[in-house]
């Protein structure tokens, strides 16, 4: 029961992007289209799960004074492998994500979860925590990019990263005259992000008030 509650927490109450403001650099820059958002989110989730598992498996033998260097080497190795795999099998994703795949290594989420959770809990717990945080991150990236892509181009396109075939495409041609191209620029990213963080803060305040009221 506790595990399921923790898993759901990663989506709404302790959302890494909107609640804890971690990993913002890539979240704001990537979320222009939902292809990029899903690709980046899945990449971060996989790196997070693997790094949590490895660090949790090694937690008894790493000396506690030099644990940060050890974590950084593990995460950097995983990100280099991920970058090479993406370059080989999903070239369209590689060209659109560019330098941000390498920047996963300094993503505050991964080092933060390794330090706070994986170094103190078992392998299965750490893997589930990585999955929950990674899916929460993907969920928030998807939210921002759906809004931005709809408002900026009046259409939603999802394509297969391996073969660049289009899976589905929604074209709101009737609204195409009203599209706001501000939302594909950095300023639009900031404004969308601000609106979503206000919504999440409101949800969090309400649930905190309800908990305090019942106590």
């Amino acid at each position: 029961m506790n595990r399921k509650q923790n898993f759901i927490n990663g989506f709404i109450k302790e959302n890494p992007v909107f609640g804890l403001y971690l990993g913002l650099c890539s979240a704001l820059a990537i979320s222009t289209t939902i292809d990029n958002a899903i690709g980046m989110g899945l990449c971060v989730t996989l790196v997070l799960i693997f790094s949590n598992v490895i660090i949790s498996a090694m937690r008894k033998i790493t000396p506690s004074e030099i644990r940060i260097p050890v974590y950084i080497v593990v995460i950097a190795t995983l990100v280099t492998c991920a970058e090479m795999l993406i370059h080989a099998f999903m070239p369209s994703l590689f060209t659109s994500l560019g330098v941000f795949i390498s920047l996963i290594v300094v993503n505050c989420i991964i080092l933060g979860r390794a330090e706070a959770f994986a170094s103190k809990n078992g392998v299965v717990d750490a893997a589930l925590d990585g999955l929950g945080m990674g899916l929460g991150y993907t969920f928030s990236l998807l939210l921002i990019s759906v809004v931005r892509e709809l408002l900026a181009t009046a259409s939603l396109t999802l394509s297969n990263p391996f073969t660049s075939d289009i899976i589905f495409q929604i074209n709101l041609t009737s609204l195409e005259a009203y599209k706001i191209s501000l939302f594909s620029s950095p300023a639009g990213a900031f404004l969308t992000f601000a609106a979503f963080s206000a919504v999440f803060a409101m949800i969090k305040n309400k649930s905190d008030a309800k908990e305090k009221g019942t106590k």
Partner: peptide
């Protein structure tokens, strides 16, 4: 408290005994 980078040595969360979940 606005930064939440838990790996930073300055963060007050380092003083907690149990990692928060």
């Amino acid at each position: 408290d606005g930064c939440k980078v838990l790996s930073c040595g300055n963060n007050p969360a380092q003083n907690k005994i149990e990692g928060d979940i």
